[in-house]
Structure formats: structure tokens, C-alpha cells
């Protein structure tokens, strides 16, 4: 059970959260202008990063908010969480525990 630092509520246990997949995948502003390839990439193509990965979480059984997190997929340690719409924070060199 992970501990996830909700940007609104603070550190909370994993059962309160729902994972939302890769972060910062923007829905094209005008989908009708998207080519088939662009639409395919938006729908289906996701990274499977080994290391620091930006992903979406929702504090579904808490404040209900979606937010983003940087998690090291090799250690399960969270390096940062930040609100939806914000840019991912720049990590100090060498990362953090």
C-alpha cells in the first residue's frame, strides 16, 4: 500500500486513490483536425517508462481531485505530486528518495 501525497489533502493511503495512466496526454483541441495517425497516438500510444514517470492519480475516495505525480517505477517512490494543469516540477539532480 503506497502513501500518496495528495496536493490538497496531504499524504494518504493508496486505497483512497485511483490511478489514471500517463499524465500530460492532451486531448487535441480540435479533434476534427487531427489526422488518423495523430488520433491513434492520442488514443493508444503510451510510454512504459522505467524510472521517473509522470502519471495521473485521482483522490477518488478523498477530495475527488485529479492530480499528477512523478513516480520512480523501479522503486515505487514518489518524487513529487502537483495539481492538474501545472507543469511537472524540476527534480534536483540525482533525484530524491
Amino acid at each position: 500500500m503506497l502513501i500518496i501525497d495528495c496536493p490538497y489533502c496531504g499524504p494518504r493511503p493508496e486505497p483512497e486513490f485511483a490511478h489514471g495512466g500517463q499524465a500530460h496526454v492532451a486531448r487535441p483541441a480540435d479533434p476534427s483536425q487531427a489526422t488518423d495517425q495523430e488520433w491513434l497516438e492520442f488514443l493508444y500510444l503510451r510510454h512504459n517508462t522505467r524510472g521517473v514517470f509522470a502519471e495521473r492519480w485521482r483522490h477518488a475516495r478523498g477530495c475527488g481531485r485529479f492530480f499528477n505525480a512523478l513516480r520512480d517505477t523501479t522503486t515505487d517512490h514518489f518524487l513529487a505530486t502537483y495539481r492538474a494543469g501545472e507543469k511537472p516540477p524540476v527534480l534536483p539532480a540525482g533525484g530524491a528518495r
Partner: peptide, 10 residues
């Protein structure tokens, strides 16, 4: 006060 879980219930 907070929304949370009690086992499988919210």
C-alpha cells in the same frame, strides 16, 4: 473530517 474508505466501502 474527510472522505475515506472502510475496507470496501466509501
Amino acid at each position: 473530517c474527510t472522505r475515506t474508505v472502510f475496507l470496501k466501502a466509501e
